[in-house]
Design a protein around this nucleic acid. Structure first.
Lengths: 229, 229
DNA sequence: AGCACTTAATGTAATATTTACACTTAATCT
DNA sequence: AGATTAAGTGTAAATATTACATTAAGTGCT
């Protein structure tokens, strides 16, 4: 095995940018680092990839440790590999993002974290390592993906109003959208089902409730839906 | 340095999918592998990332070894990391693509290659490792990027006709486009300069020659051009 | 010289998409 | 009962996309 001799000392890790929607704001789950370097600072959750672990399973493991969730939407974004990006050694990291329903989740500290907390994405302006760059790249990718994929599956409760959906899109895109145009376009895609119920207990006209036609993104794709917003 | 003890035996590599345009076909540069595994088979060019080399420099080095070219358009696409993707050990690979002018280049065998040759992208249906998947992913990405970035810089000669540009787009997208609509849209972007010359020696009405307003993609971005085709 | 051949160049009308915009409705709260 | 809040709804103008056919300017052949 001539090849094996050329292996060199290095490591690869994954970072998982976990997005959620709360209070009409796009938030990201950060951990307080348990170990050096940057011990005690808020950073993106991540871990080294295990030797017998498929790459894509590593961010899933990180997410599961922190939230208990499995089977959420997960997208690989970019790999960061500057020689000096990690102060301790050569670590190439693959960045992923996932989308979770912030209200269905009670994040808990994990092996690599002493504390976890949701932070508003657009307020963060410093993070250790190159984590700010990673966050930016993942946020940009999310903003692109949200226009061609029905990611609401993951971020909304089972039944929701059209205003909930619009709030979500405004939070992710970080800008206001026209109400009538948004509703027109979203409804015309035919992926929502009217559940024939209404909001209750709100101090205004109650909104109609909807659910998604399919329950996961994979099902959605399988049905051959087209999506563009 | 508690972190360092957790490093494990593994390697990361890059693969560079080098695209060119020839005979109105999108082609990719393959190498005949010099070493095991898959010795003697046609495969994507790639190499292990050197310990003190920034990740993005590795595909540049591969390209330079094979073609002598530096400063070409290079885009990271995806990282592949299934445990068993490489028969000899754990190798996570980062896939890039670059675009080169096939007629300005005389590819030569490199340390890892005994032979190099251009192959039509849409005719390939088997490659070693997961290289076919990598090629597909890079081709799809190129097809997306070509609609929002003026990649013609890299693939066309300095002076070219509008038909050359259309041929390029048809080769990359692998479909026919409407001549009048294409020209209208491309010209309206204002990135072409009429060089006031005409083709010579062709057995038909000679076409006007154009050049790009800027010489590199970075300049293009710097000028704040908008592009969508 | 004339004709055949090849690709370049050009405009318009029909259709589809996107944008901008304001009032009425139905509930709660005081 | 009146104030407050967010839900729900349609249209016209502007813009973008699509489909489509004829004339122009060279070379090559006889």
């Amino acid at each position: 095995m001539p090849f094996k001799n050329t292996f060199f000392k290095s490591a690869f890790s994954v970072d998982n940018v976990i997005f959620g929607l709360d209070d009409s704001k796009l938030k990201v789950l950060l951990i307080r680092r348990k170990g050096e370097p940057f011990k005690g600072e808020w950073a993106l959750p991540g871990d080294l990839v295990h030797p017998k672990e498929n790459l894509r399973d590593a961010p899933k493991r990180v997410l599961k440790e922190l939230t208990g969730l499995v089977d959420v939407y997960l997208e690989q974004v970019h790999t960061f590999g500057k020689v000096d990006r990690h102060p301790v050694g050569r670590v190439v990291t693959v960045a992923y993002y996932s989308l979770v329903n912030i209200h269905k989740v009670k994040p808990r500290a994990a092996s690599f974290a002493s504390e976890v907390e949701w932070f508003p994405v657009f307020d963060l302006d410093s993070l250790p390592f190159d984590h700010l760059e990673i966050l930016h790249k993942c946020t940009s990718r999310l903003q692109k993906s949200v226009r061609t994929m029905p990611i609401g599956f993951e971020l909304l409760p089972e039944k929701f109003t059209l205003s909930d959906v619009q709030d979500l899109y405004e939070a992710v895109l970080n800008k206001k959208l026209d109400k009538r145009n948004f509703r027109k376009k979203f409804l015309s895609m035919g992926i929502l089902v009217d559940v024939k119920e209404y909001q209750t207990g709100v101090a205004h006209r109650p909104a109609k409730l909807f659910r998604f036609e399919t329950e996961t993104y994979d099902e959605f794709k399988a049905k051959g839906f087209n999506f563009e917003i």
